[in-house]
């Protein structure tokens, strides 16, 4: 029974990784940049929801909505100030800027909220489900997280495939210059991608901090990096890939924490990344891109 409960916890954690990984994978697919600050947007989202819910006493759903709006604005601002001027710069410069933004958000949060970590109270008030005569309990958070993740995945896939904006995104990710010729506003498309990614980050932060209540200025960085691992695992640029990668990674992490070593959980996740990149650098569902001379 304990194995099944670990498995379910793994899928739940993996669903959160999958939602975060979407932000990475879409931005990477379209803007061809690794948005290092994505994990820290999650942390900021956590603080925003915490402030509105616990300090100001608003209802959880309203707080999450405000979190989503503010995170979207934050994502757009970051994109506009830090990344947009660097569209033509070498990728090293963009990456260093992204690291700078990530660091900026972390330290800003540290200055405003203080070094003491906050205890995030769950936004989800679904009662836990008891199965097999009480030997297997599934928490309310898990019951919400997994279906929500599936809904987000499905609607995002439909949005990208069917809507005009979504198809614009595919066009920009395939060939920026040709997309411009077809009358697509590249800057706007990239900005929309950032907005969607950041909104998803806010949802992910509500789900993640509801399960793992410890909220501090650095608590977004590690899940962020792991979600990137998930995005690479599933194949960067692919929406279903992010889902598969995220869930597999969540299961690997929980199982290895349970059966191998609690402290080495992170190390094992990173080992997975290195192995994946060596064996199949394009990930499970990624496309191979030929290098042009």
């Amino acid at each position: 029974m304990s194995f099944i409960s670990y498995l379910i916890n793994g899928i739940s954690l993996g669903s959160v990784y999958a939602i975060i990984a979407l932000g990475y994978t879409m931005v990477y697919g379209i803007a061809k940049m690794l948005n290092f600050a994505h994990g820290d947007v999650i942390m900021v989202g956590g603080y925003i929801i915490f402030t509105f819910m616990s300090t100001l006493g608003l209802s959880p759903i309203l707080s999450v909505l405000i979190g989503i709006i503010l995170c979207t604005l934050l994502g757009l601002t970051i994109e506009h100030i830090a990344y947009k001027p660097l569209r033509k710069a070498p990728s090293l410069a963009v990456l260093i800027t992204a690291i700078g933004v990530s660091y900026f958000l972390q330290n800003m949060a540290l200055l405003i909220a203080g070094a003491e970590s906050k205890s995030f109270s769950s936004v989800i008030s679904v009662p836990p489900l008891s199965l097999a005569e009480g030997r297997l309990t599934i928490s309310g958070e898990t019951l919400v997280t997994i279906p929500l993740c599936i809904i987000i995945m499905v609607s995002l896939t439909i949005f990208v495939r069917k809507s005009k904006t979504g198809r614009g995104m595919i066009a920009v990710s395939e060939d920026k210059d040709a997309a411009v010729l077809m009358g697509i506003n590249v800057n706007k498309t990239i900005a929309i991608t950032f907005a969607i990614g950041s909104a998803l980050a806010a949802i992910a932060s509500a789900l993640m901090f509801s399960t793992y209540s410890n909220l501090s200025s650095t608590s977004g960085a590690m899940p962020g990096i792991k979600a990137f691992v998930a995005a690479v695992f599933g194949g960067i640029g692919s929406v279903p890939g992010a889902m598969i990668g995220g869930i597999l990674l969540g299961i690997i992490e929980i199982i290895s924490r349970a059966y191998i070593s609690t402290q080495l959980g992170d190390a094992i996740v990173f080992l997975v990344l290195i192995i994946v990149l060596l064996v199949k650098p394009t990930g499970i569902l990624g496309k191979k891109i030929q290098e042009k001379v």
Binding site: L86, K88, I96, T97, V101, Y103
Partner: peptide, 12 residues
């Protein structure tokens, strides 16, 4: 962090 961002923006 601001130095990192500013240097990159200034250069590129």
């Amino acid at each position: 962090s601001i130095v990192l961002i500013a240097m990159m923006l200034f250069n590129w």
